[in-house]
């Protein structure tokens, strides 16, 4: 009997399931997307962390990796895609452009100065572009963040 019982809290159990099956959206905007693809491919193998299943639709994904330059023209689309995702949803801002405008922050008339102007960002990954290891660290940071969530008292669950 003893071997067949595992004790845990509901929060911990749900968070464990959630953090180990993060499905990112197939969504690349610029050169950072190349690094994101490399991260998902066999050499860096994002699947080890349970988040290699890149979904081709926002409706089925939990994680939006904003990989690249967010132009003002694209920013409205990014916002719509974020709103289409089912909750709980998380955002990783990947690379300098998505973090703060990158090389376009002072003179670029067409670039949004950081994707956090339009969607809430959970983890910022610096770099231009970040190496796959950096993105993996960003994903793991997000997983730690998810592991510490108090689901039953969380903003996602109303009337708890």
């Amino acid at each position: 009997m003893q071997d067949g019982v595992v004790l845990s809290t509901v929060d911990e159990f749900l968070n464990w399931g959630r953090k180990n099956s993060l499905w990112p959206m197939t969504f690349g905007l610029a050169c950072c997307a190349i690094e994101m693809m490399a991260t998902g491919a066999s050499k860096y193998d994002l699947e080890r962390f349970g988040c290699g299943a890149f979904m081709a639709t926002p409706r089925r994904s939990d994680l939006m990796i904003v990989a690249g330059t967010v132009t003002l023209k694209m920013a409205t689309r990014v916002k719509v895609l974020y709103e289409q995702m089912a909750e709980p949803k998380y955002v990783i801002s990947m690379g300098s452009c998505a973090n703060k405008g990158g090389p376009y922050w002072q003179h670029g008339y067409h670039v949004l100065k950081g994707v956090d102007e339009v969607v809430p960002v959970d983890v910022y990954v610096p770099g231009c572009p970040p190496r796959p290891e950096a993105l993996i660290e960003g994903v793991m940071t997000l997983q730690k963040k998810i592991a510490n969530e108090r689901l039953l008292r969380n903003k996602w669950v109303k009337h708890a």
Binding site: L72, K100, W105, Q106, H107, Y109, K113, G114
Partner: peptide
């Protein structure tokens, strides 16, 4: 543009020489 600030003051460095 479309409700988004193109140059948000809190993210700009107006003292930058090149600027």
């Amino acid at each position: 543009y479309n409700g988004m600030e193109v140059f948000p003051d809190h993210k700009m460095n107006y003292d930058d020489r090149e600027f």
